[in-house]
Every structure is written in C-alpha cells, then in structure tokens.
Lab assay of single mutants.
Amino acid sequence: SDFTIRIGDRTLHLKNVSEEILKILEELLRRGIDFEELRKIVEELIK
C-alpha cells in the first residue's frame, strides 16, 4: 500500500509498503524518531 509521512514541513512518500514495514515505521514515529533517521531507515528497507 502507499503511505505518506509528514513531519513538520517535510514529506516522505512510500509506495508498495508492506503492513509489517508500516507497523515498524509507526512504532518509530511513536518513539519520536528524527525525520532524517526515519528517511535513512526507509531507504534501507525499500532497497
């Protein structure tokens, strides 16, 4: 499924993301992860 994360004025667009990855990202966001850290993790996950 497609997913968009907005943190402040920044946006991260994800396409064809599995439910498992979404759950991980949601947990990281709940813990207050930094946007740049989140972006790096996402890039690793979707390689």
Rank of each mutant, 00 (worst) to 15 (best):
F35E: 05
R39M: 13
T11N: 04
R30N: 13
G8N: 04
D34F: 04
E43Q: 08
S18T: 08
L25E: 00
L25P: 00
G32K: 02
R30A: 13
G8F: 03
I46Q: 15
L29G: 04
I46N: 14
L22N: 04
R39N: 13
R31W: 05
T4M: 09
D9F: 03
R10C: 14
D9T: 11
R30H: 12
L22T: 14
S18N: 10
E43H: 10
E20V: 04
L28S: 09
E27P: 06
E26S: 07
E37F: 03
K47Y: 12
R30P: 01
E36R: 04
R39S: 14
I5K: 00
E37Q: 10
D9P: 02
G8K: 03
R10A: 10
G32M: 03
R30F: 07
L12I: 12
I5L: 03
K47E: 11
L45I: 09
H13Y: 11
E20T: 04
K23E: 11
H13Q: 07
I24T: 14
I41M: 09
N16Q: 05
F3N: 02
L28Y: 11
K15R: 10
E43F: 09
L38T: 04
V42I: 10
I7S: 02
T11A: 04
L14C: 02
T11M: 05
I5F: 03
K23M: 14
E19Q: 11
V17R: 00
S18G: 06
R6D: 15
E27V: 09
D2L: 00
L22P: 06
K15F: 08
L14G: 00
F3E: 03
E36D: 13
E27Q: 08
R39G: 09
D34K: 09
F3S: 03
D2A: 01
K47W: 12
E43K: 08
K40H: 14
L25H: 00
F3P: 01
T4E: 15
E44V: 10
R10D: 13
E20N: 09
K40T: 13
S18P: 14
G8P: 01
L12R: 00
N16G: 12
E37I: 05
E26V: 07
K15I: 08
D9M: 03
E20H: 07
V17C: 04
K40G: 13
E44P: 06
L22H: 11
F35C: 05
I46K: 09
E44S: 10
L14E: 00
G8I: 00
G8H: 03
D9V: 03
R39H: 12
I21S: 12
L12E: 00
I5E: 00
R39P: 05
L14W: 01
V42C: 07
G32V: 04
E27M: 06
E19H: 12
L14N: 00
E43L: 09
K40N: 11
N16A: 04
S1V: 14
G8R: 01
I41E: 12
T4V: 15
I33E: 09
L38C: 03
E44A: 11
G32Q: 11
L22F: 08
S1P: 13
E36H: 07
N16F: 03
L25F: 03
I41V: 11
E27W: 02
H13M: 06
R39V: 15
L25S: 03
V42Q: 02
E26G: 05
G32I: 03
D34L: 06
R6V: 15
E26L: 11
K40M: 12
I7C: 14
E44F: 06
E43N: 10
K23T: 12
H13D: 04
E26K: 12
L22E: 09
L14Q: 00
R6F: 10
K47F: 12
R30K: 12
I21G: 10
G8V: 01
L38M: 13
S18A: 02
R31Q: 13
D34Y: 03
S18D: 11
S1E: 13
K40Y: 10
K15A: 07
I33T: 12
E20S: 06
R31D: 09
G32E: 13
D34S: 12
F35I: 06
D9G: 09
H13N: 04
L28D: 05
L29F: 04
K40R: 13
E44G: 10
I41D: 05
I5A: 02
T4D: 13
E36C: 06
L28C: 10
R31E: 10
F3D: 02
E43W: 06
S1D: 13
F3M: 14
S18W: 01
R10S: 11
E36I: 04
I21D: 15
G32A: 06
I5S: 00
K15G: 06
D2M: 01
K23W: 11
E27T: 07
E19S: 12
I33L: 12
E19W: 07
L25K: 00
D2F: 01
I21R: 07
L45K: 05
L22R: 15
L38V: 08
F3Y: 11
E20I: 04
I46A: 10
E37V: 07
I24N: 11
I21Q: 15
D2Q: 01
E26I: 08
H13L: 06
D9S: 05
G8Q: 03
E27G: 09
L45H: 10
I24Y: 13
G32C: 09
R10H: 13
R30I: 11
L45D: 06
R39I: 15
I7H: 01
N16T: 02
L25D: 00
K47P: 15
K40V: 12
E43V: 07
F3K: 05
I7Y: 06
R30T: 13
I21H: 15
I21A: 12
T11L: 09
I24A: 13
K40C: 10
R30V: 11
L25W: 02
L29P: 02
I33M: 09
R31T: 11
V17I: 10
L25Y: 01
R6M: 15
V17W: 01
K47G: 14
I46R: 08
E44C: 10
R31M: 10
E19C: 11
E19K: 11
L38P: 01
S18L: 01
K15M: 08
E43T: 09
E27F: 04
L12A: 00
E36W: 06
D34P: 10
R10L: 10
D2E: 07
L14F: 07
E19T: 14
L29A: 07
I5T: 00
E36V: 07
R30S: 12
D2C: 14
G8D: 04
L14K: 00
S1R: 12
D34H: 08
I46G: 12
F3V: 15
N16R: 02
I41H: 09
E19F: 07
V42K: 01
S1W: 15
E37N: 08
S1L: 15
D9L: 03
I7E: 02
F3G: 03
N16M: 03
I33N: 08
T11Y: 10
I33C: 08
R6Q: 15
L45R: 03
I46P: 05
I24D: 12
K40L: 14
T4Y: 11
L38E: 01
I24K: 13
K23V: 14
T4N: 06
R31Y: 06
L25N: 00
I33P: 08
R30Q: 14
I24Q: 14
H13F: 05
L45V: 07
R30W: 05
S18F: 01
L12H: 01
R6W: 10
L45S: 07
V42D: 01
F35P: 08
G8W: 02
V17G: 03
E27C: 10
F3R: 04
R39C: 08
R39W: 07
F35Y: 12
E43M: 10
E20Y: 03
K47D: 11
F35V: 07
R39A: 14
G32Y: 02
T4W: 07
L22D: 04
R6S: 15
I41P: 01
L12S: 00
R10Y: 13
L45Q: 07
E20C: 02
S1Q: 14
E26Y: 08
I46Y: 11
R30D: 11
L45Y: 07
E19P: 15
E37A: 07
L28H: 15
I24H: 13
E37Y: 03
T11R: 02
I21N: 15
L29S: 06
H13C: 10
L12G: 00
L28E: 14
K15Y: 12
V42G: 06
E27L: 05
L38A: 02
F3A: 06
E44Y: 05
K47L: 11
V17E: 01
K23C: 09
I7G: 00
E36T: 06
L29Q: 06
R10N: 15
R6N: 15
L12P: 00
I5Y: 02
D2V: 01
R6C: 15
R10P: 00
S18Q: 05
L12Y: 13
K47A: 12
E19R: 09
L22Y: 08
I21P: 03
L45N: 06
G32H: 08
L12F: 11
E27K: 04
R30E: 12
E36L: 04
L12V: 06
S18M: 01
T11S: 06
E19I: 12
T4K: 04
D34Q: 13
R30G: 08
N16K: 03
L29N: 04
G8A: 02
I33W: 05
E37G: 09
K15S: 12
D34C: 01
E44M: 07
G8M: 01
I24E: 14
R30L: 12
K23F: 14
I46W: 05
R39Q: 15
E44I: 09
D34M: 07
K40E: 14
R6H: 15
E37H: 08
R31A: 12
L14T: 00
R31N: 11
L25Q: 00
S1I: 14
E37P: 05
E44H: 10
E27A: 07
K47V: 13
R39F: 12
I5W: 01
E37K: 05
R39E: 15
I21M: 15
D9K: 05
I5V: 10
T4A: 04
H13T: 08
E20F: 02
S18K: 03
I5C: 07
R10M: 13
K47H: 14
E20M: 02
R31K: 14
L14A: 01
E27Y: 03
L22C: 07
